[in-house]
Amino acid sequence: MPGDHDLLSPLTLSSRDGVKRERADAARNRQILLEAAGRILRDKGIDALSMDAVAAEAGVGIGTVYRRFGDLQGLAYALIDDQEREFQAAFISGPPPLGPGAPPQERLCAFLRRYVDRLTEQAELMATAENGDARYRSGAYNLQRQHLAMLITQIDPERDGGYLADALLAVLSARLYLHQRAGLEMTVERLNAGLDQLVRGVIG
């Protein structure tokens, strides 16, 4: 059976519109804006993040920020892009159990646990990026879905891999994670244990 690297290749990662080649000066300007947004998040938190705030922090006009990112969701996607790149590289061609070489059920559980790790670090930012149906239109979501569907089909070809992949990703919603952690006071350990139970129920 071919490895993941024969079937999948990294996408845009989190960008909704795909990666566009940038001139060197445009790339530098984009980095300046992302660094400004990062300082706002570090110093003031997610509630202070806005297009106006980024423009003021970077010392540019608001139009520059909108032209670069489109809206706040686009900015949020750009801010989580590096982590998404690392995550994709890990499950496509990294070491097992997340990457190729481990049995598919172990890889499936490793994927879910690593996703929880990502939520622990960036749930508020990911929730901003996921507003509305943006999550499902992103290249990152579709690659994740394709990967999980492949693993589920490897475990049992009779399963509906696409549907079950959507079902598993649904419980990894950043907004649900924030509710579970803050509203329901669930621990990360409980979330991971619940995901393991869910996989056993789905796969058998």
Rank of each mutant, 00 (worst) to 15 (best):
G101T: 06
R21M: 00
A36H: 09
D71K: 04
R85Q: 12
G61K: 11
R200E: 15
V171A: 06
K44L: 10
G70H: 09
R39V: 13
D82A: 15
G139M: 00
L108A: 06
A140W: 15
L119D: 00
I155M: 07
F87H: 09
G59M: 07
L112W: 02
T128I: 07
P104G: 04
E84T: 13
M1K: 10
A129W: 01
I155W: 02
L79E: 01
R42P: 08
T187Y: 02
Y163T: 10
Q144N: 12
E185F: 06
Y177T: 03
N29L: 12
N192C: 12
A170T: 04
V60N: 09
E130M: 01
A55K: 12
G3L: 09
T128W: 04
G70L: 09
P97R: 02
L184K: 09
F87M: 10
T153M: 01
A129I: 01
G45V: 07
P96W: 02
G61P: 07
R175W: 00
D117S: 08
G183T: 13
S93C: 03
G101Q: 07
D117P: 00
A123S: 14
A36F: 08
I62N: 13
R39I: 09
R23F: 05
S173W: 07
L164A: 02
Y77N: 12
D156K: 09
R135A: 06
V199S: 05
V188R: 12
A134R: 15
A127T: 01
Q88M: 10
I46A: 11
L112Y: 06
A26T: 14
N29T: 13
L8G: 00
K20P: 04
E35A: 11
R42H: 14
A149T: 05
Q122N: 15
L112G: 03
R181H: 08
A78F: 02
V199E: 05
E35W: 02
A134L: 03
T12A: 15
A165D: 02
R30E: 11
L49V: 00
R159T: 05
S173C: 08
L184R: 15
L72I: 15
G61Y: 06
P97M: 02
A134E: 11
G194E: 14
D133I: 14
